[in-house]
């Protein structure tokens, strides 16, 4: 019995050989090395100098770092629910077998493959408070739009909207794959019981795709806490530091300010934060994720 179990364990590890090699060869070394660097004053160019916990101490005392932490969580708080909600909604809409649905799928997916650099300029123009399209449309409904990207209060919401626009197609496709796998009999049975469309979505679709929702939430969380590209190309952290995120600070310190050591210490704060949030999500999944 024991021998059989042992044999089966060896067998299952066979499937994991590539993954384990990959972990050791391409990840472990890099991650450990960067962790070690967080205790050094290191600019890549000149030899590293051991400074113990100084980098961590500096980070904790830096006002800018805490502004960035605050901004990053603000982004996550807006981005995650909007993305999950919209991705599932779009997936349900384009999962219908109606004419022209393929075109809409493609349109919703287009932003995902569009380059962020090009997108950033388009949105800078769309969000211009005086001449941009967004406030023009709002004006038609008698709403005076805010200054968006040039306002410290509204820049982050604008970044969130652009990010959702840019990535929601990605999550929509994941949901779509999951929806395709729901057996039509489930809906047929519900229809016979007289359940309307909303009831079907609530009682069949949402529970059945909950393992996918869990995946999407985890992914959105990680990508939102690591947000970089959108602010790098769209706002450069401005105006008035209102969109400086932790990962933007890490990038600047590492490659623009020649402070690789300090950048890595920030990265490990971020790593810890992501880990804690993810752990909570894993612990919480038993309450709402429904596995077959």
């Amino acid at each position: 019995m024991l021998r059989k179990r042992f044999k089966s364990t060896i067998g299952i590890y066979g499937y994991l050989v590539p993954t384990i090699i990959g972990l050791i060869l391409f990840n472990a070394g890099a991650i450990v090395a960067s962790f070690v660097l967080s205790f050094y004053k290191y600019d890549v160019i000149t030899p590293a100098k051991w400074i113990g916990l100084d980098n961590y101490r500096w980070v904790l005392n830096s006002k800018l770092f805490w502004t960035a932490v605050n901004n990053t969580f603000k982004f996550a708080a807006g981005y995650i629910p909007l993305s999950v909600f919209l991705a599932l909604g779009l997936a349900i809409l384009v999962n219908e077998r109606i004419k022209g649905v393929g075109l809409f799928r493609t349109i919703f997916y287009l932003p995902v493959v569009t380059s962020m650099v090009g997108v950033s300029m388009v949105f800078a123009w769309l969000f211009n408070p005086y001449y941009g399209l967004v406030n023009y449309v709002l004006g038609l409904f008698k709403i005076t739009g805010p200054a968006w990207l040039s306002s410290p209060q509204w820049a982050m919401p604008a970044v969130i909207l652009v990010s959702v626009w840019k990535t929601v197609g990605y999550y929509m496709v994941i949901y779509l794959a999951a929806l395709q796998n729901i057996s039509p009999e489930l809906y047929e049975a519900a229809q016979i019981d007289g359940a309307n469309r909303w009831a079907q979505i609530r009682h069949i679709t949402i529970p059945v795709v909950s393992s996918t929702t869990f995946f999407v939430v985890i992914m959105c969380t990680m990508s939102s806490l690591k947000i970089f590209e959108q602010v790098y190309v769209m706002t450069q952290g401005g105006p008035a530091n209102s969109t400086v995120t932790v990962n933007l600070l890490i990038y600047r310190n590492a490659f623009e300010y020649l402070r690789m050591g300090r950048a890595t210490s920030m990265a490990y704060f971020l790593f810890a934060a992501i880990m804690i949030v993810t752990c909570i999500q894993f612990l919480g999944q038993r309450w709402w994720v429904h596995y077959e």
Partner: peptide, 28 residues
Amino acid sequence: PKFFGREAIFYILLATMMVPGQVTIIPR
């Protein structure tokens, strides 16, 4: 399948996604 080390491998794998890529560029 349930086997010894399953959770550990899964969570280590997951953890590699949490390290911000900027700082592993040089070691990699």
